[in-house]
């Protein structure tokens, strides 16, 4: 490695520590959200919910996620009951580049985070839907966003820290489906690939 690259490396290293300022503003926290497979797939999710390691509070959170009753003829999908094809509420999931990932059909009352996990869509839920993190941030189609009740203060506090926040951002765990949301699009947020250091520009494939 040339000495100029060496000194560049050193400069990058320095700037990463000096820029502590950058950590508090949501907009300046640059993140990398990349994935090729779901981090927590439906099977793991079920396994963890069945785990005896969970404390009661956590069990009830998980129970809430599978509690919702179906309103139309139902088909079993794993342990969760799914609407018969053509009868559910349609939600289109898109990746950060806007490319279509999957269209799924949901029951009334389902939330986007649980649905994503059930259908192997890579949306994290580090706090398991208790509004204590921002990992399930999604961007909704504006017309559907407007139909939702206002986010709570708690949800807004977490959105403050979300990566790639937009005007139609919500936490997936807080979006509960109703009939009039049929046809909604949920896009995973875009975030830059490099969060290691300021000034380090990765080359893309």
């Amino acid at each position: 490695m040339s000495s100029s690259t060496t000194s560049l490396l050193r400069t990058c290293l320095r700037s990463s520590s000096i820029s502590r300022q950058a950590t508090h503003g949501a907009s300046s926290l640059r993140a990398l959200h990349t994935s090729s497979r779901p981090a927590l797939n439906a099977a793991q999710w079920k396994r963890s919910s069945a785990s005896a390691w969970l404390q009661p509070r956590q069990q009830s959170i998980l129970a809430n996620r599978t509690r919702h009753m179906h309103t139309s003829p139902a088909l079993a999908h794993g342990s969760v009951t799914r609407p018969a094809p053509g009868t559910g509420i349609k939600v289109h999931f898109k990746d950060a580049k806007g490319e279509h990932l999957k269209t799924i059909e949901a029951n009334e009352g389902d939330d986007l985070l649980s649905l994503a996990h059930e259908h192997d869509i890579d949306l994290e839920g580090a706090c398991e839907g208790s509004i204590a993190c921002s990992t399930c941030h999604v961007i909704l189609s504006p017309s559907h966003y407007d139909l939702l009740p206002e986010p709570s203060d708690d949800e807004n506090d977490m959105l403050d820290m979300a990566f790639g926040l937009t005007d139609t951002s919500r936490l997936g765990c807080q979006v509960q489906l109703t009939r009039d949301l049929d046809g909604m699009t949920a896009t995973l947020p875009s975030a830059t690939r490099n969060m290691f250091v300021d000034g380090h520009k990765p080359t893309h494939h």
Partner: peptide
């Protein structure tokens, strides 16, 4: 100033003590 092969660092040890779990997770991935 050269990267050492097969030795890595992540999280607060690599970036300093900043960020919540969500950012620690993104960095880890």
């Amino acid at each position: 100033g050269t990267a050492i092969k097969n030795i890595y660092a992540s999280g607060w040890s690599a970036n300093g003590a900043k960020g919540v779990l969500a950012s620690t997770m993104m960095d880890a991935y």
